[in-house]
Design a protein around this nucleic acid. Structure first.
Lengths: 345, 345
DNA sequence: GGTTAGCACTCTATAAAGGAGAGTGCTAAC
DNA sequence: GTTAGCACTCTCCTTTATAGAGTGCTAACC
């Protein structure tokens, strides 16, 4: 059995119809709705072939057909045409996100909100490790006699702060000179290098003068490098109830529980690959039992070569892939542009 | 018709049983399970009275009875006995939360996680406006030529940062002197006063020397005072599926959608009152149609007289109030203690 | 007068039975 | 290779019957 143009067009019609109706599709429906110039009987034969080839499935003998994971895979790889966003949708994105880098936390939330509103699915936004980012500024700010805040500004405009407790009291004057010294020495290196730089001659010289740094820098480096640096935010979770596939409560619960389990969710997102363009994982490709009837579509945005974060949409395998891909591409480009403008300054 | 001891005990039995079984309770069940020394027929008569008085309801003629909102209200006000947390549960809380004030964001998440795990309901954690908190330190940290971060540390140890864009380039030396000047003048006043202080003579004098402050302080004050200062975090949303009342998908969707709608959720939390002790709102008392079959139990934690935040549990009106109240009381006390230790330092 | 046993009655939930409808696969004709 | 026709299959919905739980009422009891 081999694939031909007509089979592809029938498969495309079945998938398009199933995505919009969630009902098994019969040969007559295809014959009526899509003017393929062939009768339902012919379509019936072709659909039977497509089933044999593994692209369609039958819920039961006398029902229509439903795309299989393999069918969706073929669809997203070869058949679907990515729709451009309407002018209005683009305007919404630009208006909501603004054109300047704001606080990272705020961008994450806004992005998640827009994603879920435009797609009507659940959106995920993850900010990655900032290991690869370069330190633009570091500031030590006193809190009380035994604790201080280290404020880090990276070249991509990300601001982070970490509370650090010290054993001995520290004066604010001392912190000021510490700030100056740290900026002199560490500005420009990457966060990842902070870990390793404790070996360098330069470091030893400066620690000799400012002994507290020897405690601070490792603490800081650790805090920035551990999982705390990574985080994932979800929005539009109630959207999952828009789809009949989640009228089964246990399925809805599974999905929701997974989304709340940030650790697991991040590992799934991290497995998605971070090449340029949009990544799609369908059903069992996700390799996680809780979401075996879900699809995940993600895109990575970056500053230069550094991955800054991932955005994604999770929903039923019967997903409007064309639309979701379009939205993700647009928003990723927009975010990347925003970061780049920031870098240029 | 008037209430007597026996009616109260029957009501208590009905509510306790309904909370654990979610099934309408019949007179025979009460007679068998709870040794009240009276027959089912007597109980039947009493239950009929309790219904007439508005404390019980009948789903249909030949079913058992279910507590009404009024019944729950009486129960939480007069009947329930708050259970103490087990040693093991207390240990979990202490272990997870630690004993020192960490970053506020991290505390919020941990608290939400513990709350939902211990109660098996959905937890809410809100941090309130920090208007009433006093400024301990303010620091301006350069980001790039046209933007800076204002880092605020309050006396209760809360750290906040806000990105501020400036029209003209600012040197980091200038920011340093600005930081010194601002600390001199503003340390010790409350965040709320930041708004009003622009009228004072002192302020005018300092602005005369550091003209940029005239732009920064209002921006900062606004950013700290607007809704951004308030935030609410939810955890354990998938727990709602543990309860048969949410096997109806539209109900689950309603609740979930409300929890995602932070603005509305905060206004509900803010309406809850912030007296000492635990507040309970049952069903229509919440005055919101989406959650008219939910109950919300909240507690406020504070530093001195300032409200720092609220923690709460939302779930079906058939809620284990006694347990939830115990958990909330314990955690609020614990958080308050943590803040106070911080203040003493 | 309050309490209780007994019983008829009501209502729901569950299972069984009987179409209606949609879709298929096969055959035979084009 | 394509198509019309048709018997067959399977689900879904409605109807019907039945079991079970619980009530309210009455009459007897202490």
């Amino acid at each position: 059995m081999q694939m031909d143009e007509r089979k592809l067009r029938i498969l495309q019609a079945v998938i398009a119809d199933y995505i919009s109706t969630a009902q098994p599709i019969g040969s007559r429906t295809i014959a009526k709705k899509y003017k393929l110039g062939i009768s339902s009987a012919t379509i019936r034969n072709e659909m039977s072939d497509l089933e044999e080839m593994g692209y369609l499935e039958q819920p039961h003998t006398s029902a229509g057909r439903v795309p299989s994971e393999r069918g969706y895979r073929l669809y997203v790889d070869r058949l679907m045409q990515i729709k451009n966003l309407s002018r209005r949708e683009q305007e919404i994105i630009v208006r909501e996100l603004g054109d300047r880098m704001d606080e990272i936390e705020s961008i994450i939330r806004k992005t998640a909100r827009i994603l879920s509103q435009l797609t009507r699915y659940t959106s995920l936004v993850m900010n990655s490790h900032i290991r690869g980012c370069r330190l633009r500024h570091i500031h030590f700010v006193p809190v009380d006699s035994n604790s201080l805040v280290a404020v880090i500004v990276t070249d991509s405009g990300i601001v982070k702060n970490t509370i650090i407790k010290t054993t001995d009291p520290v004066s604010s004057e001392y912190l000021e000179s510490l700030t100056r010294a740290a900026n002199d020495k560490f500005a420009g290196i990457t966060i990842g290098e902070l870990n390793r730089c404790t070996e360098s001659e330069d470091y030893k010289r400066i620690v000799y003068r400012y002994s507290l740094l020897d405690t601070l820098i490792p603490l800081l480096a650790e805090s920035l490098n551990t999982s705390r640096g990574e985080d994932v935010y979800a929005d539009g979770m109630s959207n999952i109830f828009n789809f009949p596939e989640y009228s089964d409560v246990t399925k809805a619960k599974n999905l929701l529980a997974l989304i709340e389990e940030k650790e697991q969710l991040m590992s799934i997102l991290n497995r998605m690959g971070s090449g340029k363009g949009v990544m799609i994982s369908i059903g069992s490709e996700l390799d996680n039992n809780c979401i075996k009837d879900c699809s995940l579509v993600t895109a990575t945005y970056r500053a230069g070569e550094n991955e800054i974060g991932k955005i994604g949409i999770i929903g039923p395998t019967r997903m409007e892939y064309d639309r979701v891909v379009a939205v993700l591409e647009f928003i990723t480009d927009y975010l990347t542009g925003m970061v780049e403008r920031q870098l240029e300054e």
